[in-house]
Amino acid sequence: MNGIECFIFCIQKTGLLYPLIGLIALTFIFLFMFYKMRNNESLLASQFSMTFIISFNLLSMNCDMFNWVWIYLGIILIGTILMSIVRIYLDLKLDKDFFRLPPHLSEIEHHWKVDIRILDTQRIKAFTYKNKIYLSVGLLERLEKDEIKSVVAHEVYHLHHSPNKFLSSLLAITSMTFLRFNDQHRADRYAVKKSGFENLVNAFRKLQIKDAEKRIKKLSSIVID
């Protein structure tokens, strides 16, 4: 009896064969649909192949290596628990201690039809979370109205086009690629399209964004083209 036969025999005895095949098939379909819809081929390919390798290992291992299944499930479980804790903490933190956008900037909110919340911190922050855009007072202090618009446009791209962070982190953990979806450049391009190159570049420089010059250089080549 070879490894695969032995494994199938073991699993058949526990009645897990068909559920396991179903689970792997569903994971493939889900990963494929999820990233295909968002047109992110590189991560799709990476996660797809890693999931395949893991599944292949699970299916071809010897009976005495059945523990691998539990290790894999354990990683998924621990990852889910840790990320859930982070999410609960963020929910609690972000649902209090925020301001509304000041009146002179409220047109930005109306224009994009998004809920923009202001965080009470001097630190420079701009991110999306649960269909809302969060900006910090520290950021608003530094930027002119048009530059704030470009930051919001960048975040709006993430809001509508970037995958759910929880889900993409979970997928990265379960397929063991440890890759995170990164579409900053696409969001930058979107912001340039919606609010102009100069505004975004000024915002980057004023906020002393990490890798700002690299991102500007990348954008410049597109603008020139």
Binding site: F99, P102, P103, H104, Q122, V137, L140
Partner: peptide, 13 residues
């Protein structure tokens, strides 16, 4: 301490 000033065309501490 800090307070928020929204009097001008900019929100600031």
């Amino acid at each position: 301490n800090r307070t928020i000033d929204e009097t001008g065309q900019r929100m600031r501490y």
